[in-house]
Amino acid sequence: MASAAAVLQSEWTKIRTVSSTTWTLISVFLATVVIGGVISAVSNSTFGDLSDVSQTTFDPTLTSFSGMVLGQLAMVVFGVLVVGSEYSSGMIRTSLAAVPRRATFLFSKIGVAGLLALVVGLITGFVAFFIGQALLGDHSTTIGEPGVLRAVIGSGLYMCLIALFSMGITVMLRSSMLSLGILMPFFFLVSNILAAVPKAKDVAHYFPDQAGQKLLQVVPDAANGGGGSYGPWGGFGIMCAWVVAALIGGYLVLRNRDA
C-alpha cells in the first residue's frame, strides 16, 4: 500500500504545478473582497434610504461578505478542476496505477485541496471583513462583537465546504464540463431563486449553500440573510452533511467503476 504521506506530497505537487489553481484561487479572493468592498461602501452611503426594519436588522458582517456570491463560484471552479483535470486528461489511469488504493488516492487529493481552500477562504474572509468594515464607516462592527469572529471564520469554512462539495460531485460525474454545468447555475441562480419563492424556500433552506451561509450571519433576522429554523452551527451541520454525502458518493463511484 502506498504510504499516505507520499501520496499527500504527490497531490500537493499536482495542485501547485498547474496554473488553474493560481487563477481560480486569486479569483476567489478578488471577487469576494472587491465586490464585498463595493457593496459595503454603497450600503454606507445609502443607509438612510433603508426602511426602519432594514436598519435595525442591518448585518454589517454579512454585508462585507456580499462578494462571496461570486467568490464561491470561483471556488466551485477550483474544486471541479482539481478533480476533473484527472478525467479530462486521462491522467486518472496513470494516477490510479501509481496509487491503486482508491480511498488513499481520493482522500489525499481532497484533503490537500480542501486544506488549501480553507486557508484561502480564511484569508479571503478576514480581508473582506476588515475592508468591508472600513468602508461601512459608522455602520460597521468590530471583530470583538458577539458572533462576529465566528462569522468571519465561518466564511472560510463555508468556502472550504463549497470546494469539497464540488470535488465530491465531480468525482461522481467524472467530468469537469458536466460538473461546472450543473454546479455553477445551481449556486448562482437556482438556489437563490428557490430560496425566494414562498413554498420552495422551505426546501431551499436546506440546500448546502443556503444552510452554510447561516454561519456568516451575525444578526439573526438580517434582511439579506437566509431563513430556516436552524442556527449558525445547525446550518453548518446541514452543509457538512451535504459534503459528506457528496464525498461518499464520489468515493463509491471511484471504487466501483472502471477507470
Binding site: A6, T13, K14, T94, S95, A98
Partner: peptide, 20 residues
C-alpha cells in the same frame, strides 16, 4: 498523453515519483 497537459513533463513525472 495520459498526463495533465498544463503541467510540465518534469512535474508530471515528479507527481508520480513522489506518490511511490
Amino acid at each position: 498523453k495520459a498526463m495533465h497537459g498544463g503541467r510540465t513533463a518534469y512535474n508530471n513525472l515528479l507527481c508520480l515519483a513522489q506518490s511511490n
